[in-house]
Every structure is written in structure tokens, then in C-alpha cells.
Design a protein around this nucleic acid. Structure first.
Lengths: 234, 234
DNA sequence: CCACAATTTTGGAGTCACTGCAAGTTCGAT
DNA sequence: ATCGAACTTGCAGTGACTCCAAAATTGTGG
């Protein structure tokens, strides 16, 4: 059954609602646009909107949800002899070079970023999406090595990798929002990404070691840990 | 003037509202309790509640906000010759041993966890708190080494450390919620924490390497690869 | 003690996201 | 054409949250 009229209409109205909503969001931001307004512009009732999209935020993140299983493709696409960290390094630098959208370095991605930044609920939604990606990546890694469910290594690795890319992209986007041109950002970002992935691969074991006394001027006032004693009085 | 009558009353009503709210949350969960109900129970108007707490979620996270600057104390409290990673390892294992509340391994912490898990908005709030902690830790690290603002290393390190502890605690809490006793969880958690921090210190460079063709076993892509010349093919 | 100003509290009206329900309306198959 | 299923709609309602203007309370100076 190659799609009856009913299913086509469903797909069409859903798409129309999403498009109309995105159009309004792009011009006026997220919060100022009401769902009633979207419904009117899409020529449907408010209930129909909520019939397709459980929340207003989903109306924005609609197309972006496919990003969730993107990390898994990187895992599966890594080359012989290549570790996951290396694969992500390569993937990130590739995306940086081609300005592919998969890390939010899209041209015009700053418009999206501005909208998201302007709405706390959208920021929250984005974080939710991030943890979904994390979970998906962790699962993919666990599958790859068929680790038992009590091995937390896949989750830790997933968090570290996606945390790294997250830092890199948010930094780049911040500079974009500040009005910097991509040409000035790109080389810095490339260097920062290389450094970050180097750190990711080699570990932070010797990062920020407190100098021993008598060594190197910066012996830093000995801060007594003192009041570790207040909190929710249980 | 060390606190007039006005300021005392303000502090008192604020505390009363927070306490009453927490009491209701503990017995009935978060979402089912309405702000109007809290206001009635605290003998104030709804507007007064919102006068002290910007959102309903803040009513729950009130005391937990001081947790934000907890990681900085770990950084400042590390011993001579100790790296931040080691300091956090030590701090985490200490907290694990004493069941201190600072990593949510509190006795009875599962009650909180159950409430939070039951409400999407509280989960979101918790994530927000987590990124606040991350930012605070990154700032502390940057201060410690006075790195320039374009060095992303502090942020990456902060994300990795807190990401690791987050994984550990959420895993432990999940098992708590499943009804397991602390005595069965604790030893596993200790081993997992040791493994996780080992990984954190030594890096994930050789994690999950795709075996070369014609080879099947643990071909352990050693610290050999060394092609740091990532010429992206663009 | 009495104004007088500053601050806090309150009530009321209103917005908006979102839910539930009971009616239409449309579509697919018989 | 007809019937049942699925989709849409209107309506009424809840609950968080805001704005505003009127009390009520507190601090200060005469």
C-alpha cells in the first residue's frame, strides 16, 4: 500500500505546520510566537498542532531530531585501525572544512543559535537532545564491543567525546554571534579542535597539577577545605 | 544595623515557603502539587511565592544551588603534586565512603531522585544546574592557570570530569531506584569509579579501535599511529 | 505620636501552553 | 451508498506566570 490519500494529507499538514512555524520563528523569535498564531497561519486548529507535536518546542526541533543517530554513523564509519576518538576528530575537522551542518557550523547557523539562545525552553530542549545523542552513542559503543550493562566505559567515552565537540561548537557559535566572520574563526577553531582531541586521546592525568612546595613560585595559598559541613540537614 | 525586623520577616517567609513546598513535594511529587496549594499551606498569596522564587522549579532547587561552587573547592583543596583528576577521584571515593550528599549518594537520596525523575521540568532544571557547575569549574581551572579566554582546555577538562562523576552517580542512583541495597551497590561503584577515573586520566585514545582487515582479535592499536598530520581533504 | 516614604503583600484580570471531551468531518473498505 | 475508523475541531478548563494598582507593613524624621 503505497500511501493512501489519508496518509498523504497527514504528512502534508504536518509538514505545513512545521514549515509555517519555522517561518514565524525565524522572523520573530520563539517565545513571542503563540501556538494559536501558528495554527491560524497554517489554517488548522490549535488542537491539530498539538496532535502532531507534543510540545511547542518539538515544533522547532522537528527536523533536528534526526541528528540523534548521527554519532552512531561516525562510529560505524570509522576506518580500520581507527579509534572512535580519531574518527570523531576526523569527522569534526571534515565538517569544519566543508561547513556541514552536523555540528551546527552551518552557514547561517547563527540565526538558529540566536533564536535558541533567546528562549530558555529551547535551550532546555537542546540539552535534552544532547543527552539523547549521548545515550545513542553510548549504546552504539556498547554494542560494538558488546560490553555488559554494568560497564560504564561506553557512557563515559560518549560523554567525553560529545562534551568535547559541544564545547568546540558552542565556542565557535558564540564568536559567530559576536559578529566575527567565519574566516577569522575557522583557523582558530581548527587549532582548538586539534588541541581538544589531543587532550581527549591522551587524557587529563597531568592537567593542572598543584606544584609541590618549594617549587615554582606559584605555591598558592593553602586553602583549608574547612566548611564541608553545611548542606541539606538530613 | 544587623538585620532589621523587615529583613528577618522576609527571610522567614521565604524559608517557610520553601519548607512547606518541599514538604508537599516529598509526599505527593512535584507536578501534582500546585503553586496555589503551596501558597495556601504557607499562608501567603500566590504572588508572594513568585516574588521569592521565579519559577516553581526554583522552589525545589532552592538549597541545591549552593552545590554550584562545590567543584571549585575540590580544585582548591587538592594536595601538592596532585592533578585535578586525582583530586576529584579522591573526593568522589571519599564521598562514596562516607555517603556524603555532595554527589547525590546521600542516604535517602533516592527519594529526591524519584521526585526529580517523575517530572520532566525538574530533570531540565537539574541539567541546567549541571551546566552551571561545569561553567563554574571551568572558570576555576582557567583562573588557576590563568589561561587566556581562547584556550578551551579548562572547559573540556571540566566537562570530562563532571561528565564522569555524573555518569557514576546516575548509574548508582538508577540501581538505588531499582531497589538495590547500598551494600550491594557500593563495591561495584567503587570499582567502576576507579576504572572511570583511570580512563579519564589516561585518555580514550585507544578505545574501540576498529580491527584491521584480516585481523580479528584485540589488535590494540597501540600508542603508535602518530599521524598527527590531519590534512582534511578539502 | 504622627505623618511620610519605601517596601512588601495582595487581589484581580489576563496570557499562554496544554489537556480532555464530545461533537463534527473525512477517508477507506465493503 | 454505508458504516466504522481516523482525523479535525470547538469548547471548557487547569496551571504557571505576568502586570498593575490598591492595601498593609515597616523604617525614618519631626
Amino acid at each position: 500500500m503505497e500511501e493512501g490519500l489519508r496518509e498523504r494529507k497527514k504528512r502534508e499538514t504536518r509538514q505545513r505546520i512545521a514549515d509555517v512555524a519555522m517561518g514565524l520563528f525565524m522572523t520573530r523569535g520563539f517565545d513571542p510566537v503563540t501556538v494559536a498564531e501558528i495554527a491560524r497561519a497554517a489554517d488548522v486548529s490549535v488542537n491539530t498542532v498539538f496532535n502532531y507535536f507534543p510540545t511547542k518546542e518539538d515544533l522547532f526541533a522537528d527536523r533536528q531530531e534526526l541528528v540523534t543517530d548521527l554519532p552512531q554513523q561516525v562510529v560505524r564509519g570509522r576506518r580500520p585501525g581507527e579509534s572512535v576518538a580519531r574518527a570523531f576528530r576526523r569527522d569534526f575537522l571534515e565538517a569544519l572544512g566543508s561547513r556541514h551542518w552536523r555540528y551546527g557550523l552551518n552557514e547561517g547557523g547563527d540565526v538558529f543559535a540566536r533564536i535558541v539562545n533567546g528562549s530558555p525552553s529551547l535551550v532546555a530542549k537542546l540539552r535534552e537532545l544532547h543527552v539523547a545523542r549521548e545515550r545513542a552513542l553510548a549504546r552504539a559503543l556498547a554494542d560494538e564491543l558488546d560490553a555488559d550493562p554494568d560497564d560504564l566505559t561506553p557512557q563515559v567515552v560518549a560523554t567525553q567525546i560529545l562534551g568535547t565537540t559541544r564545547i568546540l561548537t558552542t565556542h565557535a557559535v558564540t564568536r559567530m554571534l559576536a559578529g566575527e566572520s567565519w574566516e577569522t574563526i575557522a583557523p582558530d577553531l581548527r587549532a582548538q579542535a586539534t588541541a581538544a582531541f589531543d587532550l581527549l586521546e591522551s587524557g587529563i592525568g597531568d592537567y593542572c597539577v598543584r606544584p609541590s612546595v618549594g617549587e615554582d613560585g606559584r605555591q598558592d595559598a593553602g586553602p583549608e577545605p574547612e566548611d564541608h559541613e553545611h548542606g541539606p540537614e538530613d
